[in-house]
Computed example of a mutant assay.
Amino acid sequence: MQLALALAGAMLIGASAHAQDAAALKKNMIGQWELSTTDRSKTCVVTLKPESTQQGSKLELEPDCAKVLPFTKDIVAWNIKGLDIVRLQTPAGEAVIDLTEVESGIFEGIRSGEGVYILQNLAAARSLSKTMDAMIGDWSIVRGNGRAICGLTLTNNEAGPENFQLFLKPRCDPLVANFKPTQWRLERGELLMFSASGETWHFEADDNAQWRRMPDMADPLLLLRQ
């Protein structure tokens, strides 16, 4: 009997905690968000509201959303499903897209046959956009001792659905020349470079406003603005 009561109490506590988590997430979602493709070449501003309707909670889409992201024409409300799923839904409550938090304030969802979409706080998304604009131009790849081994140019020329063109300058060190990156993008705080063969280099911004290749090495590679 005591065991049964203990189990029932634990279940009630667990259910209460889950309800609190969902309620906290719903409260945190109120406001303006950007729904976009992973490279942010297509974006739509979504305003999530606290008022409830029969379909869920109210939302507003900016006027051009359906032109930019056609699937958004079916979205009329939003809701929280489970503990961490933000559902943008039809009048019947069916999911147009379910988005799960993958990082603080960044949600990811997949639409079959279309790909991955990102939902993130509008202010943070626009800050990222400014960061990307700031990346366009000439850079040097530099060894930890300060010796430049290659120059390159990051452009905003589209090179596919998510990436942008990258051009190496002449006389690069074999390490970079053999890698031969041709495309780049920003993704979740990283700068990614891609070779035609599918190899990827990851760079993270460090405390000195420079980008360091990861994983870190004894002789690091740094990406510095020229």
Rank of each mutant, 00 (worst) to 15 (best):
Q89G: 06
L222M: 14
L221R: 12
A17L: 12
R188S: 12
N178I: 08
L223M: 13
Q120D: 12
Y117R: 05
L223R: 04
V46T: 09
W184A: 03
M29R: 09
Q54C: 05
L166D: 01
E187T: 08
L221Y: 14
L186P: 06
T153Y: 06
G109E: 00
K42T: 11
R225P: 07
V116R: 15
P170D: 12
Q210Y: 05
E94I: 00
D173P: 09
P70R: 06
L69H: 01
Q120S: 14
P220A: 14
L99W: 02
K49G: 02
E158V: 11
P161A: 13
S41R: 10
E103Q: 15
K42E: 10
A22I: 00
C172Y: 01
G31Y: 15
K42P: 03
S140K: 11
R213T: 03
T200Y: 06
P161T: 12
L175A: 13
L222H: 05
G144Q: 12
A15Q: 09
I118K: 10
D216F: 06
L12S: 14
A92Q: 13
F179Q: 02
G9T: 05
I85F: 07
L99V: 02
E187Y: 15
V46P: 13
R185I: 00
E94Q: 13
F71K: 03
L61D: 01
R126H: 14
E199Y: 05
D21H: 07
A123C: 11
K180S: 13
L3I: 13
G9Q: 08
Q54H: 08
I141T: 01
S140G: 12
G137D: 10
G93W: 05
D21N: 11
A23H: 02
L191Q: 01
A66P: 03
S127D: 07
V176H: 00
D219Y: 14
V45Q: 14
P91L: 09
I149H: 09
C150H: 00
G9C: 03
T43W: 01
V96D: 13
V176M: 12
D207C: 04
D39A: 15
P170G: 07
V102L: 11
E114H: 12
L119F: 07
E162A: 15
W184E: 02
F179G: 00
N178K: 15
A205N: 05
T155V: 03
L5E: 15
G93S: 08
C44Y: 00
A15C: 04
T153L: 08
